[in-house]
Design a protein around this nucleic acid. Structure first.
Length: 132
DNA sequence: AGTCTGACTAGTA
DNA sequence: CTACTAGCCAGAC
């Protein structure tokens, strides 16, 4: 059965009471940390796995603080849905993201992950996050 | 308080 | 294929 596109309510439920809740960010980091080495996922996929399908931007925003989070978050394994290294400019050195990916055996050509079809790792379907 | 922007994405033309 | 729009929502101004 397919999930019926939860509206912004999905995210609201994560941040109840209108109070700013860091659990969403935590959840994002938690998912990203589980991306296997040598695989990548997308902002939208992470958001979808958290029930906030249309909040991919928030995932990207969460990654902004990723470098402050412990344990470390493999932010380089998160690319956009096309496999493009859209966040490379946030790694200090623009070439670091690609270097990290290639170090894991991922082929990157022209800021784009190759073989996305086999490299992509979808947390929603390959990982059961809902079951704690 | 309004407008713009962004590590996004899906849809439409 | 490209271009533009809407939805998303937290910050910067």
């Amino acid at each position: 059965m397919k999930k019926p596109t939860p509206p912004s309510q999905a995210l609201k439920s994560v941040t109840p009471g209108g109070r700013r809740d860091e659990s969403f960010f935590e959840a994002v980091y938690d998912v990203v940390r589980q991306v296997p080495k040598g695989r990548v996922t997308s902002y939208g996929a992470v958001a979808a796995a958290l029930g906030a399908r249309s909040s991919a931007r928030m995932v990207g925003w969460a990654m902004n603080n990723a470098h402050l989070i412990k344990p470390k978050v493999p932010a380089h394994r998160v690319v956009n849905r096309l496999g493009m290294l859209s966040g490379k400019m946030h790694f200090g050195d623009p070439d670091r993201m690609q270097a990290l990916l290639e170090k894991e055996g991922i082929r990157v050509v022209d800021d784009k992950v190759q073989d996305m079809k086999t490299t992509f790792w979808d947390p929603a379907s390959e990982l059961d996050i809902m079951r704690r």
